[in-house]
C-alpha cells in the first residue's frame, strides 16, 4: 500500500518531468524539470530498496550534474539566433514541429523494437515472493572491493581523467601567441 503510493508518486514525477523536458521551450525550465525527473528516479530506487543508489542519485545529480548544466546554460547565454553568420536560416535550437516529428518517428521505431523484446516478459512473468528490503550499503561496499574491484579502479581513473580533461578543455587560452 505504502510502496504502491510511493511508486505512483515517483513514477508521476519521473514521467512528468521527462515529458516536460521534451515539451518545454525554455532551456532553464527544461533543466529544472530534469531535476524533478531525477528526484523521481531517486524515489523509484527507494521503492526498489536500493537506498544507497537513491542517495547517490541525489548527491550526484542534484548536487553536481544539474548545477553544472545550469552553469553551462548561464555561461553560454540563453540567447537564440535564428540566422547563422552566413545569413542562412537555422532550425531554432529548441526544435520545430519537423524535428519533433522525426523524433516521434524514431521513438516509435524504438518502441516497436523494445516492446517486441519485452512482450514475452509482460505475458509470462509471474511474480515470486519478494524478500524484505535490507540495507544494501555494506554489501555494495564489499562488492565494490571484491568482485568489482577492477571496474572500481577504472572508474576512479575515469573520474580523474574527466576532472583533468574538463579543466584543460575549458581553460581560457590566449588567442594569439601562447603555447602553440
Amino acid at each position: 500500500m505504502f510502496l504502491d503510493t510511493m511508486f505512483l508518486l515517483s513514477a508521476l514525477a519521473t514521467l512528468g518531468g521527462a515529458l516536460m523536458v521534451v515539451m518545454s521551450k525554455n532551456l532553464m525550465h527544461a533543466c529544472m524539470y530534469l531535476l524533478l525527473s531525477l528526484f523521481g528516479v531517486a524515489g523509484l530506487y527507494a521503492t526498489l530498496g536500493a537506498d544507497f543508489l537513491a542517495a547517490t542519485q541525489l548527491v550526484v545529480y542534484a548536487g553536481g550534474v544539474v548545477i553544472l548544466m545550469l552553469f553551462a546554460i548561464m555561461l553560454t547565454g540563453g540567447v537564440e539566433e535564428f540566422v547563422n553568420k552566413f545569413g542562412i536560416n537555422k532550425i531554432p535550437s529548441m526544435g520545430t514541429t519537423k524535428t519533433y516529428t522525426i523524433g516521434a518517428i524514431v521513438s516509435l521505431i524504438f518502441s516497436f523494437v523494445i516492446l517486441k523484446t519485452l512482450s514475452p516478459l509482460f505475458k509470462n512473468y509471474s511474480q515470486a515472493d519478494l524478500p524484505p528490503m535490507e540495507s544494501t550499503v555494506e554489501d555494495i561496499g564489499v562488492l565494490l572491493v571484491t568482485d568489482h574491484a577492477l571496474a572500481f579502479e577504472i572508474s576512479s581513473v575515469l573520474l580523474l581523467g574527466a576532472l583533468i580533461g574538463a579543466a584543460v578543455i575549458s581553460r581560457p587560452r590566449k588567442i594569439n601567441g601562447g603555447s602553440k
Partner: peptide, 19 residues
C-alpha cells in the same frame, strides 16, 4: 521505457547541445 523514449526524442528534436 518511457524515460528512454523521452530521452531519444529530446536528443533528436533539440538542436541545442546542452538540451
Amino acid at each position: 521505457f518511457a524515460l528512454f523514449l523521452c530521452g531519444i526524442v529530446v536528443i533528436i528534436a533539440r538542436k541545442n547541445i546542452i538540451a
